[in-house]
Design a protein around this nucleic acid. Sequence first.
DNA 1: ATACGTGCAAAGCCTTTGCAGGTGA
DNA 2: TCACCTGCAAAGGCTTTGCACGTAT
Lengths: 151, 151
Amino acid sequence: MAQLSSVYRRLEEGSKRLTPQRELIIKLFLERPGQHLSAEEVHQLVKNEFRDIGMATVYRTLEMLTQLDVLQQIHFNDGRARYEINLETTNVHRHHHMVCLRCGRVEEFQEDLLEQLEDRVLKDRGFRVVDHELKFYGTCRQCERKQGGRS
Amino acid sequence: MAQLSSVYRRLEEGSKRLTPQRELIIKLFLERPGQHLSAEEVHQLVKNEFRDIGMATVYRTLEMLTQLDVLQQIHFNDGRARYEINLETTNVHRHHHMVCLRCGRVEEFQEDLLEQLEDRVLKDRGFRVVDHELKFYGTCRQCERKQGGRS
DNA sequence: ATACGTGCAAAGCCTTTGCAGGTGA
DNA sequence: TCACCTGCAAAGGCTTTGCACGTAT
């Protein structure tokens, strides 16, 4: 897994140690490139392989990995932070999200039609964009089929 | 103020009473159409005119107004909810935000280039968008001037 | 030896809820 | 009366911090 060694290198550069707990957490995210896990979910998943890991360690590791730009923190307006792996750290522009209002599932899409908008904003308002975040809220295919589009 | 009576009507329709506390909160938002206030900020501002209002009342009022679609709740990844008035309730498509990473100021812009993207997402992925939310993170004009664009 | 990492428990925020006491319809 | 509303205090969730005990360098 090519990504793994690059993450390890980042740890070293920050003089961070690669403990079993941290390794498990990192692998968790690398194995699930499209997922957005909460701290609680990470804790549950890691516990399968490392019984005694504490929530504090999970939070501290997630914080550290976010600082190192290995993870990215996201909020979906449900009051808890979620994390996803940042596969293209060098690329500040990331993919976007579709949040299903029925089942809560979060899908993603890769699309970048926003450059022109960013240019406009810089010209008109003097705001220099370094990152953007786009979320669509609606109904996913499954829920759409199930209920024909109405709540 | 045209908006005010429309808000009052909504309260009536929901058989909600217009108490002094609620009126002050509503006016607060109507007077600041472009602002995004946290519950704490609303509490402080209302306390100037109504000494004894409690946080619970503020939260309950914000919740109620959000239900009635008078306010909209937003999260800017700082762990607390913010609220802004929803001037065009009938229009599900709202304006967007530019969050300055230096000073934290939030500006807005009105722009809608997303329809084509939404159509694509429906065709390709079966996801029916009912609302979207776009945030730009970057440097605002003032901070850009102050520090020439670097942190 | 020293700096770093861990689990546990406690503490911190922000937010919600229970409750007894009001108040409008 | 009855449903609604309030402030206060307590309780809830999620997250961070203090601490004593390990463990790599």
